[in-house]
Design a protein around this nucleic acid. Sequence first.
RNA 1: GUGGCCGUAGCUCAUCAGGUAGAGCACCGGAUUGUGGCUCCGGAGGUGGUGGGUUCGAGACCCAUCGGCCACCCCA
Length: 424
Amino acid sequence: MKTIRSIRGMNDILPPETSLWQYLEKQVASLLAEYGYREIRLPVIEHTELFQNSIGESTDIVEKEMYSFSDRNGDSLTLRPEGTASCVRALCQHHLAPALQKLWYQGPMFRHERPQHGRQRQFHQLGVEVFGVASAEVDAELLLLSARLWRRLGLEKRIQLQLNSLGDGESRQHYREALVSWLSAREAALDDDSRRRLRNNPLRILDSKNPQTQSLLEDAPVMADFLNEEAAAHFDRLREILDANGLVYTVNHRLVRGLDYYNRTVFEWVTEALGAQGTVCGGGRYDTLVQQFGGKATPAAGFAAGLERLVLLLQQLQQSPLEEPLADVYFTAVGDAARVCAITLAEAVRDQLDGYNILVNCEGGSFKSQLKKADKSGARLAVIIGEREVAARSAGIKPLRGESAEQFSVAQSELAARLQGLLA
RNA sequence: GUGGCCGUAGCUCAUCAGGUAGAGCACCGGAUUGUGGCUCCGGAGGUGGUGGGUUCGAGACCCAUCGGCCACCCCA
């Protein structure tokens, strides 16, 4: 029989890696609570048009990366490729706008790309979104809290912030026209992809990796020169706050984002350590999206971070917050009566001791083999139950980590108390 | 989606003008029979990703396919 494999690009996350994920998720949840953000949980499947209308018809995500299918009544549904659209949809559906909402979510996203290190078809994002406030202070807070997250995780040295402003609708339109006409005059010098984008999505040409295109762009018009007064003031204000907080960033005039809904502030946290998958976190402001979905005009800003990429960075650190031992106490038992006794005693110990991991050997075998397992479990204490202990209503306690500690025997009625004393 | 590199025991890898596979780690057992960690000894485990082809004979050559990685692309 052919063995069934998981779908390409959709990976299992196994222990002990799961404990690194748990560590990351715990840091995220507590940090966001400290900034007053609350969790929202969203469905993984949505109507296809939700993404077409928000991300943009001519983006690569919508054009060729979505997992879309018809359900039984003929509706076109899509496995979400990102979370912001769902979040905005929920906001409108439940009439939560335009009041202030600070929300975060986390979970799997789906994009049909070619899998690579740091890029899979089912991946996980942390999304953080703020609705109802247009101020640059919100943008700044999002950046400051993400910077704090990197610090907590010990990643601050490996992730750098890039910042740009796309301006508002009108100024962006002007810039787009200027860029298109400037580039059209030089179309012959462009690579194929860029030439195609000249019609679809000209701003994306700015972050082409083609070196020729990049050097051509040296002299191209710059967005910053087209910002209207409000957008320019917003960007200045944001930079002022970041500077006041000592947050280091580089302004990258070529930074644009692949999703159409952004305006004003856009940013990316990037790393050198993951090859071509260098973007760990990206986001910006999207002031028109809520209204576009039929909600009341509600300014908004947010970002998404790739959890797999963060996990990879954490693994590169070689630190191990995950090296927690599996067990604190390990019960060994030889003989049928002893094994019943061990299980019962372990239950009683769990009744009385909170927060300790109590493992009972269920595989059987000699004391020798069971003690080997006790040792590998990382337990500090082994409890030994054999025929003699069953008859005497006693239990052996063997310290496994101490230097000179000898095994000793206690009454079964005192076992929990003695273990507690030794573990404390 | 495009181009390239790769795919041998659970893991990391080796071998060889093409003649039907090995090591380390892990696993199991033993070193006087109720006791771990170190050491020593032994054992189990691979239809060589899968399917075709070339050949007297292929894991080694060719093709396809699946999967991984790198770059492009894209983005988190």
